[in-house]
Amino acid sequence: MNALSGLLAASEGESSNPIIPAWFEVVWGSIAFFLLLIVMWKLALPPIRRAMEARTERIQGDLDAAATAKTEAEELRASYDARLAEANAEAARIIEEARAQAEEVRQERLAAIEPEIAERRAQAEADIAAARERAMAEVRADITSIAVGAAEQVVMASIDEAAHAQLIEDYIERVGN
């Protein structure tokens, strides 16, 4: 049954109280512990603590620098934004001014040109009326002279009814041509 005790290879000596420390174990344990303490204190820990502190400082420094950079960037951006808004307002103002000026100029020009147009229109209307008068007079004179001529012809050939008709016919044809 005691396969377990074989595995454990435990002591065959008299069983002592487990509460009482065994001296030889205290000796080896103390040697191990004080060696560990000395190695840790003098050799292993200082460089590691230095490195950890250096890294902490560096990370903190990086974080601080990043925070500073961020604040600066934000300030810069705020100033850019302000300037942009200013420029936009300025541009809007200039455009508005230009538009007002253009409108003013247009109104002025319009006002200046109005009487001239009216004058020219009156002139043109008078010209048309005169031309028409002249033409009417000419036409009337022509028709009179034609009628006189036709009457002469009729009077001259009144003997013959047929000749009379022929004459009128001829005359009209002539005039028509």
Binding site: N2, S5, L8, A9, A10, E12, S15, S16, A22, F24
Partner: peptide, 15 residues
């Protein structure tokens, strides 16, 4: 048929 080992077998080791 279970035998619990004596405590000395569990705790005390020969050098």
């Amino acid at each position: 048929a279970l035998t619990f080992p004596d405590i000395a077998h569990l705790l005390e080791w020969p050098g």
